[in-house]
């Protein structure tokens, strides 16, 4: 499968099944498009009509290069993975990551919050006890098989409303590491309201990553992330986040915002954060009921695509300069990256990754919490709903008609099961608006890599 596109002056050709990515000239771009359907003579003739200024021997040369790439298994490679998909879905049940809902309560009243200020579809406001937290870690260790690297994310609501329990769970995890051959990676997501020096110091010692929620420009942030009283939160949290990011040496964190229909010019929010000194930035499209006035609509796509293009071009301009930064959705690893198994299975929700409520109930991921049909069991008795687990286990890029022939499948892994369910009532579908944005972001990310390679070659 081939995907080819033009962006920011670059002609890019992706060979999807091998993972090879090529930057080509105009002639080769046009030849690759017709290479499989025309004979050599027909192709040369077609190119003579389209590019009369180019000599035939140059066309012969380009044709030969395409054939070489094909012989090297770097173009027109067939899918070698789908025949093994049945074995793939028979893999053993292993849990390697938990999302601990440490607090089903929040001190902000964000308009777009999928968690309803921490109450998740009408659940009571409550905090996780240390006993439940410890039991969750025991459950993880017991169900992790031979996996050594385990992950625990402190999520909410707002986790800092239950900070003493967070610390207790981390300390318990470090004790478990000594008695089991396991390594915990703890992460924390916070709105920053309660951040202080003591919390930063502990987090810098123990948290592999922290996610700091801020939407960008003050007026954008304050419109969607007020206190319950309606008061603005930007001036409260921004100085704390700047201090926190600096204290982590500008690594192992993200400032993370949400853009909505209110700020389709979201590149300005990204650059606002970058110009304040943040180096690790994510600003992501809201996913919500399409009836909400701030929900993104299909008709917004051209505007959003242009915004991603503008942001990508700006990042190229800043490459290797003091004001460069990382943008989460443009980060792509072409030289390494995960293996095909991982690319096919994605996040592992409902199988390798589970969410735990304050009382110990298990759900496929944080996005499903509170949806009664998705209750999987609890940390005391384990996973009881094996039928549901099997549904998630069989969820992969080949189980989704929209994904099987999509060029982005090995970079996106079939998208988010929760978004698919919310859009179509089925985890094996795909959230169409999200797909279009994801494909655009992958195209931009690869263009940035092409531009960086060119700039490196000029040095």
């Amino acid at each position: 499968m081939i995907h080819q596109y033009k962006n920011n002056g670059y002609n890019i050709v992706m060979d999807v099944n091998s993972g090879a990515i090529h930057v080509v000239d105009d002639l080769m771009y046009d030849m690759i498009e017709k290479f499989q359907e025309l004979s050599k003579e027909e192709l040369i003739q077609a190119m003579q009509e389209k590019h009369p200024e180019i000599a035939v021997d140059v066309m012969e040369e380009a044709y030969s290069e395409i054939q070489d790439l094909k012989d090297q298994q770097a173009l027109f490679v067939e899918d070698a993975y789908e025949p093994y998909i049945d074995e793939f879905t028979d893999r053993p049940n292993v849990v390697k990551a938990l999302c601990l809902h440490i607090a089903h309560d929040c001190n902000l009243a964000c308009e777009y919050c999928f968690a309803d200020e921490g109450t998740y579809n009408g659940m009571p406001k409550e905090l996780m006890s240390l006993e439940v937290g410890k039991k969750a870690l025991d459950f993880l260790v017991e169900n992790s098989g031979n996996r050594r690297n385990l992950e625990v994310d402190f999520f909410g609501g707002e986790p800092l409303l239950n900070w003493e329990v967070v610390k207790g769970i981390v300390n318990y995890g470090r004790e478990l590491e000594k008695t089991h051959d396991k390594k915990f990676r703890f992460t924390l997501t916070t709105n920053g309201v309660r951040l202080n020096d003591e919390i930063m110091e502990f987090a810098n010692k123990e948290m592999g990553n922290v996610v700091l929620s801020i939407d960008g420009r003050p007026e954008v942030h304050n419109r969607m992330r007020p206190f319950p009283s309606g008061a603005a939160s930007y001036d409260i949290v921004m100085p704390k986040f700047q201090k926190f990011a600096e204290s982590r040496n500008q690594t192992n964190y993200y400032v993370r915002g949400t853009f909505t229909r209110n700020n389709k010019d979201f590149a300005k929010d990204v650059l606002h954060l970058a110009d304040l000194g943040f180096k690790e930035i994510s600003v992501e499209p809201v996913v919500t009921d399409p009836k909400e006035p701030y929900a993104l609509q299909e008709e917004d796509l051209p505007e959003l695509f242009a915004e991603y293009d503008e942001l990508a071009a700006e990042m190229v301009k800043r490459y290797k300069k003091d004001n460069e930064f990382n943008f989460f959705h443009f980060m792509i690893d072409l030289a390494g990256g995960p293996c095909v198994y991982k690319r096919l299975s994605g996040c592992g929700s409902g199988t390798e990754y589970l969410a735990v409520t304050p009382t110990g109930d298990l759900y496929p991921c944080h996005q499903f919490v509170g949806k009664k049909d998705f209750l999987m069991g609890n940390i005391f008795e384990g996973v009881k709903n094996n039928e549901l687990r099997d549904q998630f286990k069989k969820c992969n890029v080949y189980s989704k008609d929209k994904c099987r022939n999509c060029f982005a499948k090995f970079y996106c892994s079939g998208g988010c099961a929760a978004n698919s369910y919310n859009a179509h009532g089925n985890i094996n579908d795909a959230y169409d608006l999200g797909c279009e944005l994801q494909k655009k972001r992958i195209e931009c990310a690869i263009m940035i890599k092409a531009a960086e390679a060119e700039l490196d070659a000029e040095e």
Partner: peptide, 29 residues
């Protein structure tokens, strides 16, 4: 080659499960 520059030479690795929960920017562990 005159008409093409290949950006990546490493083909997809055709698992151990030790990598982080996520895919495009993930590192193999």
């Amino acid at each position: 080659m005159k008409h093409v520059k290949t950006l990546n030479t490493k083909k997809l690795c055709n698992g151990c499960g030790e990598c982080q929960t996520s895919v495009g920017n993930q590192t193999c562990e």
